[in-house]
Structure formats: C-alpha cells, structure tokens
Design a protein around this nucleic acid. Structure first.
Lengths: 329, 329
DNA sequence: CTGTTAGCGCGTTCAG
DNA sequence: CTGAACGCGCTAACAG
C-alpha cells in the first residue's frame, strides 16, 4: 500500500506538506503543491480513510440509523430508496457511511449507544423512522453528543437538524386535487399512526382542508397498515364519496377493498410508491423523492459537521397520478 | 473516550495484556484475565474498531458490493432483503460492513478499485448481482487480492467462494408442480437475461423438465422485464397452456396480460416476492430467502478470512403459493 | 506469564 | 513556507 510517506519522498517534501495539500490547507507554495499533486497521480495514491479517522477527529464518518418497516413487508421500497440515496451521496462527498438498524440498538442504554458510535469514530448520525416513542433515541438526540439529522421529525437544536417535506401541505394538495376532481363532499380519512409526526401532520392537513371546503370528515386510524385500511374501507366507504389515505399502502388496501365491494370511490394516497401501480386503478398521490431526501440529509449533516447550526429543512413534493403502464416502462 | 490504556492502568497490567484478553489470545493467567475483564466492565470500555483496523491487518472490515436493480424500479424488495440480511449478520459477527454500489465503481479500472478498497482497509467483499459482462469485476475476482463471496455465480478459487440456491433444480420444482397441477403440455417459457448465470440455469432446468415430461417448450427472452413479459404473453400465450417465467416480476407481467386478454393460463414465477400478491391471481413461485442468503454469504466470507478455502455453497429453496391476503396480514 | 517497544497511516503543532 | 516529532488506539513481536 502506497502511503503518504511515499508521496512525500517522491516529491521531495515532508509528510506534513503532503497532508496540507491533501486537505487543502494554506501555507504551501504553488510549485510544491503541483509537485505533490504530480507525485500523487504517478503513485496512484489514495489516502487511507481509516488512518485519517484515527488521527484527526473530523474524518467524516457518519451513520445512517434506520428503523426498517418490518411490520409491513411490502414497503422495502421506501427504505431502499433512503439507503441508496444516502449511500450514494455520502460516497460523492467522501464521507464514510455505515448503516445501522434500530434492531441492533435494541435493549442498549443511551450510554452504550454513544460508546458504540464513538468506538467507530462516528461523528454524525442520520435517523430515519424515529417516532415519539423511542425514548433512548430522543435522549441520544438531546444529549447532543453527535451531530444529527432527523428525517420526518420536527425538532432542531444546536447540532441537530430535521428534514422532510411539508406533510400537512402535501396532504392538503393531494386531497384537494382529488376532491375537486370528483366534487366529493364526504371524506373518509384513513390516518396513519397516532404517535407518528408525519401521520399527525397529514391529519392536520386534511382537517384544515375539510374545513376550508366545508366537507364532512370522518377519521379512522389505519396505523399505516394495508390490512386495516382494507377493513376500514369495507366498513365505512359506502356512506362516503371519497377516501383519502395517509399512505400509499393504505390507499392500495382501500382500493382493493373497493374493487371487491364493486363500488367506485376516488382514492388518494401518500408517498409515491411504485407499488401504487399495482393497486388496480389509478390514484393521485404525493410523490416523495426518498433518495433525494436522504441525499439532502447527508448534505445537511455535512453542514452541521462543518460547524453549521441545526435548523429545519423543508423539501419539495409533487402530486402525481400513478399508472401501471408507466411504472413498468 | 476511554481507551485500552485506561483499562490497563485501572487493572494494573500492561496494554498488551489487555489486548490479549480482548482478542482471546493465550498466555494470560486466569487471575489477570479476570482483573482486566472487571476493569473493562467498570470503565464501560469498547474497543475502537478503527484503531484495530489500522494496526492489524485482520480487523474484519468487509464490503457488500451490490448491483442495484435500476432497470426495474419495482424490485427494491430483493435488494433490500440482501442488504438487511448482510448488515444484520455482519453486526452480529462484529464485522464492519460498508455498502458499495456498482455505480460508484463505474469507469474505474481494476487497479483503482483495489486501491479504493485497500484505502478503506477492506479485506473481504461480497458481490451481489454480478453478470458475465462485468469485465473489471471478474478481473478483480481473478486477481485474488481480496477474499470474495459471489452470490448467484458459479465460480470458486482459492479465496473466492460462490453461494446461492440451485436455480436449475428450483425451476424444475416450481414448474413441475404447476404443470402437473394443470396437466399442461405446451409451455411458454419467458426466460431472464442471456448473460445471467441464474437465468441460464433456470432455462436449463425448464429444458430438462420439458424433456422429461414430454412437453412442447417455446422459449423467449424477457430479460427480467415485466413489460417484455407482458408483451410476450400477449403475443404467444394463446397457443400454449402454461406460462413459466424466470422471475416473479415477469410472472406478474404475464398474469396481468392474461387478465387483460381475459383468458386463463396457469403461471408460475421465481423469487418469492411479496409483490406477487399484487398480481391479481395466485401463483406458484420459488421462495428464495434473500436475507438468509446474504447472511450466509457473510458467514462464508468470515470463513474465508479465517483461512478457509473457497468453495461452492448451495442453499435451500422452497416452493410456495402467493396470496394477497397472506402478504398483507 | 507479563511488560516494553515499535509501528499502522495520517493529522498537527512548533521550531526553523 | 517547510520539516521533524509526537500522538490517535491498537496489535504484534520481542524481551524480561
């Protein structure tokens, strides 16, 4: 393995000089800088990130902490997009990214978790899928030991940012479109989970909208479960004229129930899953760019690592109509 | 951060002794071992894996190299299962696992790729999704620089193992079941990609089976594409009495085409995707336990790292029938 | 059986 | 502007 030492020898300068060139520090003449760069090229030198992490404390090692959707097997899609987006972006930004699942931290205390990450020289963490119930994680956040970016959570502090779309507005947008298209008046809203921030925001959205359009609103919790949404639809759809769902998966469940009941009701979803194309009929939904969101989260974390202050970042969303033939093309 | 030095001081021994205890080396008396372990407990010491990796050359850092299915957006499911299985297992075995996508290596030469991994102190690599066309990767494999485990590829060498189910046999099993259930005689086989090892093996399987059962076999390549399978079905299904597909996604495409054509033909798939439940009708398919496969791959890699010789590992599969109501339960 | 010493590859003072 | 020297946390010979 060719090391910084070899580069130094080859270009006839000291190790520290090479290091400075590598990290873009000032205090190196253009000539020597050029010499060093040439040597790097010729020797095909690639700095060892492990050694860098050991020696300095800002070597850019971050963790992606994910709560996999184990309850419903069908939406690996979202998790996958998040992971892929973050991994890709981290690589671009030359950050070392390790992936950690909530399940691996289960039963550990905050102190243990902190040590776990410190032992890996992790300095920043992106958390996806955190709910209000995750006590230890919230404690971890509040301790402020690591720079953190929280996805789909509303909280920020000195070194903690949060990021995500405006769920309330998105719910309003997609539901308004669907309701106006169908001149609906009586809404069945199948909400997500009670303790979920996005779930609560979306619920607020539909409440505002129902108020604004003077629609009757009937709310039931589907807990983001396709099966529950299906059953709720069987139970309550007949006497309403539109079904608004807090997630695509629930929208699919609702749609399939409607098909089995052999009645028509417009349905709209939330997320933009490709799976929507398999629902049986077209639906409006909110398109979230998950890969883009996690990529943005990585950038935000980098911003924090470089001394930026925690803040709230709102990302854009779009309303789309999902068709089977589009998604398989 | 509490380091090995602190533990040494606390227990009144030398650093190296602590290291020996940590790594289970012989040559330490029971008494001192106990003292050291106590100190570790009291100090909540967690060894820094980064430092260990730098210092020794067998610190268990491995990479999961994946070719994401970008062509068809619908099967993040498989990729996700692979990733989750490997990440989980690696964590259990205390191996550092980094995830790398093929796309990140695009345009890089073998030498560059080797340096990239060496710079990260990677000593073993699991490759998932490699085809016969990936020149540089094959070169990487043949160089033998890293211990490697190849998923769904048939090649092994001194420090390269391969792992996967028996695709030929699995194709035979699922097709036989479907054909016997329906007394079919004329098979439309929608094959995968030409240059794919699993694709080729599955094709061999159906050929053998057709021979054995004296069935007429008509083969077309669907390239693992749902859309192509759909079109092939429109074109050729009418004059056959069973459609065997080399993947679930293609089976779904075929099934939906049949529904649109309003004719019935038994269809069977391959993979065991949850998505199968959304096809519209029930189908037989081969259930691959992807998470289990990648977990096994991690174990196999560990075996290689510890000096084991490369070999071929065959994992079991099962035949199942996918139902919508089962998958959403 | 235990302690001393020398690195791993790199970042970072601090003299020159 | 440059270079020698030290240390990050740990492993691995080598002495004692």
């Amino acid at each position: 393995m060719v090391s910084i030492k070899d580069v130094a020898r080859r270009s006839g300068v000291a190790i520290s000089t090479v290091s400075k060139v590598l990290n873009g520090y000032p205090g190196v003449s253009e000539k020597t800088k050029k010499k060093v760069k040439e040597a790097i090229e010729e020797l095909h030198f690639v700095p060892n990130s492990i050694a860098a992490a050991l020696s300095s404390k800002q070597a850019g090692r971050i963790a992606l902490l994910m709560n996999l959707n184990t309850q419903t097997k069908a939406i690996d899609e979202i998790d996958m997009q998040y992971m892929a987006g973050a991994i890709q972006k981290a690589q671009e930004m030359k950050l070392d990214l390790i992936t950690v699942f909530f399940s691996m931290l289960k039963g550990k205390s905050v102190a243990e978790i902190i040590r776990y990450f410190q032992a890996q020289s992790i300095e920043g963490i992106i958390v996806y899928g955190m709910s209000g119930n995750d006590r230890v994680l919230w404690e971890l956040v509040e301790r402020g030991v690591f720079k953190m970016v929280l996805v789909d959570v509303s909280y920020h502090a000195e070194n903690v940012s949060c990021i995500g779309i405006n769920h309330r507005q998105a719910q309003i947008d997609v539901a308004r479109k669907t309701i106006l298209e169908n001149r609906s008046k009586k809404i069945l809203y199948i909400a997500g989970k009670k303790n979920s921030y996005p779930g609560a925001e979306r619920l607020r959205g539909i409440e505002e909208l129902a108020e604004e359009l003077s629609c009757k609103l009937f709310v039931r919790y589907g807990d983001f479960s396709e099966l529950k949404a299906r059953n709720l639809t069987f139970q309550y759809a007949k006497s309403r004229d539109v079904i608004v769902c807090g997630s695509d998966l629930m929208a699919i469940g609702a749609m399939r129930a409607l098909i089995e009941m052999d009645i028509f009701r417009p349905v709209c979803g939330f997320d933009g899953l490709v799976l929507m194309g398999y629902a049986g009929k077209q639906m409006n939904t909110v398109q979230q760019n998950f890969a883009g969101i996690s990529a943005a989260a990585v950038e935000e974390l980098q911003y924090l690592l470089q001394g930026g202050e925690g803040r709230e970042v709102i990302l854009p969303h779009t309303i789309v109509r999902m068709k089977y033939l589009d998604i398989i093309a």
